[in-house]
Each structure stands twice: as C-alpha cells, then as structure tokens.
C-alpha cells in the first residue's frame, strides 16, 4: 500500500519571548497509508496541531522531513493534494456561505464554469443549502464546522487533514460527519484526523498514533495496540443472604450494595465465576454479568504521560 503522509524525525522548536525555546514536536516519524483513516490523538499541547500545521505548510519544521504523497510539505504543490479543516474554522464573516466556498474553489483552481455547480453540491452535502446566501457572521459553531468541511472538500483532494472535525457538533451533526468520513474513505481518500472523542476515533480509524509532549508514544493498528482480553467484570445480583457480602468483598475491586441488591466489579473472569457461585449458594439471583475489554480510552489513559 502506498504512503499518503510520511514524517521522518520531525522536530519543531518554537522560540518564545526572551529567546526561551519550547519543543512542540520531537523526532516524530509516522506513516499514513493511502486510503486509510488515521487517528492522531494526545492531550492538549501534545503537538497534534503543530504537526498538522507542518503538514499544511503553516509552520516550518526545525529539523526532519514531512511528505504528502511523496512531495515535501515545503513544496507548494503538496497542498494540491490536501483538504484542510482547522480546529474551529474561521471564515471571512462578511462573506456568505456561497461566497466563501466560491473563494476557496477559485483558490483551489477549479474552473470558473464549474464553480457554481460545485458550491451548490457541497452546500447540499453538508446540509447548508438553505444558508447559501447567509453571512457567515450569523453562523453557529456547528454550521461553521460544516462549512469548514465543505471548503476542505471543494477540490476533491486525495488526503483530508481534519483537526477536531467533530468538535462543536450536536449528536446528529457528529453522526453525519462520521458518515461523511467513512464515505470519503470509500471513495479512496485518506483521512488524517485528531479528536479528543476517543470513541469516535476507535469507531472510525484503521490506525492511530498517540503523542505525548511532542513525542510519539504508540503507533499502529487499533486492534494491535489495544489489549482485547477482559480487564474487568461487573456483576449485579439480588436476593442473597447478608453473609455473602463478606465473601464477595474479599473478591472484588469495588462493591456497592443497598438493601438486598449488590453491584460488584472483579478484575478477572475466574473471580467473576467465583462471585457468581457465592451469590447462588447464598440464595441470590444473578441479574447481569458484564465483561469489560480495554477500549481506546483505557489505552490512552494507560499510555499517555499527561501534561
């Protein structure tokens, strides 16, 4: 499979006031396969947005290299390949949604005769058809996010770089954007995106990279990174003899009981089985036994070094 985005030992050091240096990204090496959805996660200030700024030509790396479809990001031609949605996209507020997209379509070199048709298509696709003649000034955050997505799609790029595409959207909007991302992948585009909503990342991405303090902590396919074994089991029982509680307490990590119902959490399936037997011997009824496997959030908490 071809590589859509590649960074090699990328390092970015910013010089602050009084010459104080701040390392935003350190030795970051990544490969994003063509046609995949790639999640770039990390806490605030981990270096995600700086990396995206390098890929989109807004920042210059202090050292290392970054390439888009084999073209160096320092080359303006690399930007032909990408559609970029910044975090909280900003637009000229005096322009209408239609005028904004026309402006971006012209900057992207779309022939004049095709612009009107493309703008209408895009506004329809992102659900802003009725807002075509409204000034962006009056748009909600969600509407600006949709318009941002439309401007990223204006030239049908091969790669989408989306910084927090799901932020500011209501549940319906989030679902629509998720579906749009999957649709873009089906059309053959590669998507590189950041998000703090890890459930969405887990649902959408083929691969993820976790960064912390500017450094790559983990990188790979989600199924390879996450431990899919059971990490805990929740047991809900009721109608037991009070004598059972002491035996259960020795087994479990957490226990909550009220009247004759109990909710316990144990850390292995064996202990869950023992707890079930204790409950049943004590005359109780098992209402539910729910095993938990590690998800991306657990992986994130386990691996992220924090701020």
């Amino acid at each position: 499979m071809k590589t859509a985005i590649e960074t090699k030992n990328l390092t970015v050091v910013f010089r602050g006031k009084w010459g104080v240096q701040k390392r935003a990204v350190h030795n970051l090496s990544l490969k994003v396969s063509e046609g995949s959805i790639f999640g770039f996660i990390g806490h605030n200030g981990a270096g995600k947005t700086t990396t995206i700024k390098i890929l989109t030509g807004l920042c210059r790396p202090t050292s290392g290299e970054a390439e888009i479809m084999g073209i160096s990001v320092n080359n303006v031609a690399a930007r032909n390949k990408i559609g970029f949605l910044p975090e909280n996209p900003y637009f000229y507020e005096y322009l209408t949604a239609g005028e904004s997209l026309t402006f971006y379509a012209r900057l992207r070199g779309i022939p004049r005769k095709d612009i009107n048709k493309r703008v209408d298509e895009l506004l329809d696709e992102v659900g802003l058809k009725d807002a075509k003649s409204r000034a962006v000034k009056g748009f909600s955050k969600g509407m600006k996010q949709r318009l941002g997505l439309a401007q990223a799609m204006v030239h049908n790029p091969e790669i989408y770089i989306l910084d927090e595409p799901l932020s500011g959207l209501d549940p319906v909007g989030r679902r629509e954007v998720r579906e749009k991302i999957i649709e873009l992948k089906k059309k053959g585009s590669s998507i590189f995106f950041t998000s703090h909503v890890l459930a969405d990342v887990e649902m959408l991405c083929d691969e993820v990279a976790l960064v912390s303090q500017g450094e790559l902590v983990s990188f790979g396919k989600i199924d390879e990174l996450i431990n899919r074994e059971v990490i805990s089991v929740d047991i809900h029982g009721e109608g037991f003899e009070q004598g059972c509680l002491k035996k259960l307490e020795k087994l479990c990590k957490h226990m909550v009981h009220k009247d004759n119902t109990v909710l316990i959490t144990v850390d292995t399936e064996e202990k869950a089985q023992q707890a079930k037997e204790i409950l049943e011997k004590g005359g109780g009824t098992l209402r539910a036994m729910i095993p938990h496997r590690e998800n991306l959030e657990d992986f994130y908490v386990r691996n992220s070094r924090g701020v």
Binding site: T56, G57, V76, R79, N88, P89, L107
Partner: peptide
C-alpha cells in the same frame, strides 16, 4: 489573529 489565514495558506499558493 482571526486564523482566516489557515484555510487560505493551506491552498497551493505562495
């Protein structure tokens, strides 16, 4: 300041 530059300079333009 208003970050309108982000979407513009990410277009193929010097």
């Amino acid at each position: 300041d208003k970050k309108t530059l982000y979407t513009i300079l990410s277009c193929p333009m010097n």
